[in-house]
Design a protein around this nucleic acid. Sequence first.
DNA 1: GTGAAAGCGCTAACAG
DNA 2: CTGTTAGCGCTTTCAC
Lengths: 338, 338
Amino acid sequence: MVKKVTIYDLAEDLQVSPATVSRSLNNHPSISPKTKERIKLHAKKSGYRTNKFASNLSKQKSNTIGVIVPRLNSYFMSTVLAGIEKVANDDGYNLIISQSLESETKEKLNAKTLYDSGVDALLISLSYETTDYEHLTTFTDRKIPLLLFDRVFNLPSCPTILIDNMAAGLDATEHLITQGCSNIIHVSGNLKRNTYQERFKGFKQALKKHGLPFSRLQILETDLDPEKVNLALNRIANSKHPIDGIFVANDTYAVHLIKALLKQGYRIPEDIKVVGFNNDPVSEVISPNLTTIEYPGYKMGVLAGQRIIGYLKGTINLQSANSITLNHKLIVRESTAN
Amino acid sequence: MVKKVTIYDLAEDLQVSPATVSRSLNNHPSISPKTKERIKLHAKKSGYRTNKFASNLSKQKSNTIGVIVPRLNSYFMSTVLAGIEKVANDDGYNLIISQSLESETKEKLNAKTLYDSGVDALLISLSYETTDYEHLTTFTDRKIPLLLFDRVFNLPSCPTILIDNMAAGLDATEHLITQGCSNIIHVSGNLKRNTYQERFKGFKQALKKHGLPFSRLQILETDLDPEKVNLALNRIANSKHPIDGIFVANDTYAVHLIKALLKQGYRIPEDIKVVGFNNDPVSEVISPNLTTIEYPGYKMGVLAGQRIIGYLKGTINLQSANSITLNHKLIVRESTAN
DNA sequence: GTGAAAGCGCTAACAG
DNA sequence: CTGTTAGCGCTTTCAC
């Protein structure tokens, strides 16, 4: 058991005041280099560790960034988190991470906890359910910077980072059309969320652009649970005109759907062509390889981290570039070949 | 901007002492239910939020648990984290998560930061590189509970949670043997780490048990980077006797290896049978489906969280059950069929 | 360039 | 059951 050493101990040892010790340790300019060195050295030797609680209490900031994501264990999200963690860590920030599990209630609870924990900033990707945003205004009201990524909502003066989901949806669908599909359906996630809604918009736009009709039966809203692949199968089986193209809003579901389709005797890509979304590792493992949209998760995390930290450090003005759009890319693979 | 309200404000409003307010808010038994209610109500109405810094400083505890993992963005780890987060969140604990990126230096830095941040406990899964453990004794010396999971090291009086990697390695290898393989190689991760070392031991034990010889050429130590699948391919191509079975230490590498083997014209499982490890989602997506070992990541996370929190709350004595072993299970799929 | 001292907001021992 | 009071360890004005 090691007993804690405080700045008072150091001050006593060195016959200076606690203030001088504090200033030295924080590299305050008004301390002579000599005493600064002397104090730092002694601090190191005595195994001094600054007590963050005291420091935080006094400074009213925590050097901690809160993060709320729908779930930790998705390929995409864990990649984003890895990016955030990287920059946060490099800049000496801690990350408190919590998951909403797609529940608005839990998201609000998490937000409250993070607020109470005194995070200096909040990064959040919204749950499926969230329709009310007062848990976020708690932060903005108190001038705690807030940045939304991926699953965003247009909150006044809150920066967002995302990709152009509509353009991506358009690219995906247009690719199917170019490959000869004329009877395309879109399997979507929760349409309340911008990401899925925009992809759907892109889907419709592509159809329109190419003079294809759109009917209600061409959009299937799901929670993208790959266990429920039957929903899509049924829709396909019951279609009047045989479906020849599917645009799925994420790779995991797409991959499970492909497996189910193959099992039912459909040939892919000959009978039905499939495009996914995200460029998850599974997309390269499934046979046939899945055509998909590359979604730069790690980069998104890095950027989100950099912007919020830049703001905290005063080097970036968040308002100036309110919304950042990352590039996406269509990756053509076997599942849409001719 | 909302100005902060403190217990002093509440005390003044209600004409009681700050102590009474504090006690009421913390449900201290020695306060009459009446005043307790009165105070709580008023606190809520005035939008009071407890200042954790002050509370932590005074109580010398943070209600925060630190977690260090090699990387956030692996299926297995993110699943474990999801489990930890679940129980932590349910019990009102915050999680500070950081990744070592397999670097000992970074792991130590992270440990230091978490220590300085005053975490009440530390959960850690070691990096590939780590061979020195003084960053961990920092915690144990100061009686901060420490629990290692998955990638562990036998530190005196530190509980661990893992699976029986040796038995799992034995099961995997024995399955190959049962299926008729007699020329088996093992593609391993870094043999410094318990997980891989134990799986390798199980591999050797299975060979021995079934009277098969073992030579140095049957073990390939890698960093399991799926980009480097050539290492395994070369070993297979250069083998005097044709390899007919491969036990790979994780699914991701196994899957990439299978793809490469198929491309080279090997038939799987006819020519070569393959067993992976982890039961990642990819194992079910690859064709042929990969036989693998189920590794209960979420459960491991939940258990790790429960134990450490149980200990912090005084309901569990960590020393008593120093090491917990979770069950694994061989999942037989197409890649080892006859 | 350095020191004295007043907080930061909450907790807990002690007293009543 | 409630109040007084002394910290917790660091930061930061204001003096000197």
